[in-house]
Computed example of a mutant assay.
Amino acid sequence: MDHVLTLVAPRGALSTATLHAARDALAAIGAFTGTPDWLAEAEAVDLPFGGLAPDQADAAARGALAGQPVDVIALGAAGRRKRLLIADMDSTIVTTETLDELAGQAGIKDRIAAITKRAMNGELDFEGALRERVGMLKGLPVEAMERTWEETALMPGARELVATMRAHGARCALVSGGFTFFTGRVAALVGFHEHHSNTLLEDNGRLTGHVAEPILGRNAKLATLKRLAAEEGIGLDATLAVGDGANDLDMIQAAGLGVAYHAKPIVAAAARARVEHGDLRVLLFAQGYRAAEFAAT
């Protein structure tokens, strides 16, 4: 079979009835299917198929499973395991927007979060919105960043995703429109090989209200994906990019497996693959990893 449809549900919640519904939906529009391969009992299954394009299979299965907490990803069967991972940080590898949480230390979280929301949904220029938000933090003691870090939590599945891909030879990079203070800590905690982000400028123990130029934004994320792929001597088809905001969209669309993760509407609508229900472990199942292969963390 040329393609694989992967279904993932919360642990213990994926039934054979759900699998059969997806299979029947594909058959109804002309697909032929193979023997299901369970990657994790009652959690993740691969359904080989042919006779349809991946986007057709994806749409048919999603329609059949509407209302169920099941993630659906259809891909070509060849080259599923990627050799480069590029991941956004905020609301992807960590559960929060660190700039919004930092603004909470200044008592202006709601004001800054409103701008963040618009920027992440593509309504505002990312670079301009970042400068505006950082300017509102002028004079904030740098200790506020440490307090924000103490309250930052990893996204479920983050460590397993990176550890498993590393164990199988992939290069893993954290590429964020956020700040080095946080990306450095997240990269070390999760196990990324490297991190790329922006730098908040400070003077005499307080934020200056400025960010170092040039700003790492949407174009820079795509450029980083292409540069790291070239350094690894691989094509973009061998890469995985994941993120949730509009500044992630170019790299998501360019990667061989580009995933909109619990993403803003503009990103979810434009990405070829999306995760709406599960955690980051879904990205491993989408690559054909079995739960028994996940690296211990």
Rank of each mutant, 00 (worst) to 15 (best):
M155V: 07
L124W: 10
A268T: 09
A53G: 14
G243K: 11
F294V: 00
R274G: 10
H3D: 12
L102Y: 03
T164W: 05
A129N: 01
I115Y: 08
I108A: 05
L124Q: 03
L161R: 01
L200F: 03
V282Y: 03
L14Q: 07
L5M: 10
C172L: 03
M89F: 05
L228N: 00
H20W: 13
L174N: 01
L130R: 12
G30Y: 02
A270M: 08
E97W: 10
E194A: 14
D250N: 13
A9L: 04
A114L: 12
E276H: 08
A241M: 06
L249P: 01
L249Y: 06
A292Y: 00
L39C: 06
G107E: 06
I93R: 04
L283K: 09
D125N: 15
A144Q: 00
T180C: 00
G243D: 08
A64F: 11
A241N: 09
F126T: 07
L130M: 14
G50C: 05
D46T: 13
L228Q: 06
S91F: 09
D279M: 13
A167F: 07
N204D: 15
H277V: 14
D203C: 12
T224M: 14
E232Q: 15
H193E: 14
A269I: 08
G12P: 01
L201S: 08
D37T: 11
K138I: 00
M136V: 04
Q287V: 03
S91P: 06
F285M: 04
M251A: 12
R131D: 10
G63K: 12
A187F: 02
R111F: 03
K264M: 07
R23P: 02
R185Q: 03
R62M: 08
V4H: 00
T164L: 02
A53T: 15
M251D: 01
A220F: 02
G122E: 09
D2K: 13
T95G: 02
H195W: 07
A17S: 13
S197P: 05
V211Y: 06
A74W: 09
M165F: 09
A223I: 09
A173D: 04
G177Q: 06
A77Y: 01
R81N: 08
L65I: 05
A268C: 04
H195P: 00
A263I: 02
A246E: 10
A144F: 04
R185M: 09
I215N: 06
T96Y: 01
